[in-house]
Amino acid sequence: MDKPGVTQLLLRLKDGEEQVYDQLYPLIYEKLKGLAYAQMSHQSQGHTLSKTELVHEAYLKMVDQTKIDFNNKSHFFAIASRCMRQILIDYARKKNAEKRGGKEEDVTYIDQLFHAQEEKSQELLGIDEALDKLSELNERLVKVVEMKFFGNMTIEQTASALDISTSTVKRDWIKARGWLHRELKGRFEIT
């Protein structure tokens, strides 16, 4: 979908049309994934993980900023961060399924040495589950986590997207982090 299309959808979102969200979400999801691939392939050797800009880049590429107000922008960031969460969780699930599945061929001892390092995906899945629980208590805490942690947005970007003060973002973040930690403690060796 072209830029005006996405912008239009975004504008309609504030009128509370739910199907608009359902249309926007996969668009942003695919865009982000594509951007990630593009970014990685451009720098084949010695690439750095230029992840921070991903959500922002998507915003710049997908939305006509002249047509959009602040509120629409925060909607976009919220959706994009949620998409990033989704992308990473999908990846972690796939990773996990690979580990458990594939009984056909025996994985050998040596193979396992390589897989041993790939443990964070489990923890990611745990965080995802816990976030669903947390959303029943305070949806904003979840948004802060999505933006800051999954969307790699800065405190300032997050504050601006959610239209709250930076100190509120910091407090929300601390509370959410503490809450998640308590939920996951004992299940993962988190440090």
Binding site: A36, M40, L49, K51, I87, L88, Y91, A92, K95, E118, K120, S121, E123, L124, I127, K148, F149, F150, N152, R177, L180, H181, I190, T191
Partner: peptide, 14 residues
Amino acid sequence: GWLEDPQDYQREFY
């Protein structure tokens, strides 16, 4: 300090 560096979790993905 936990979760402060999202890269820890995303590096593998990238």
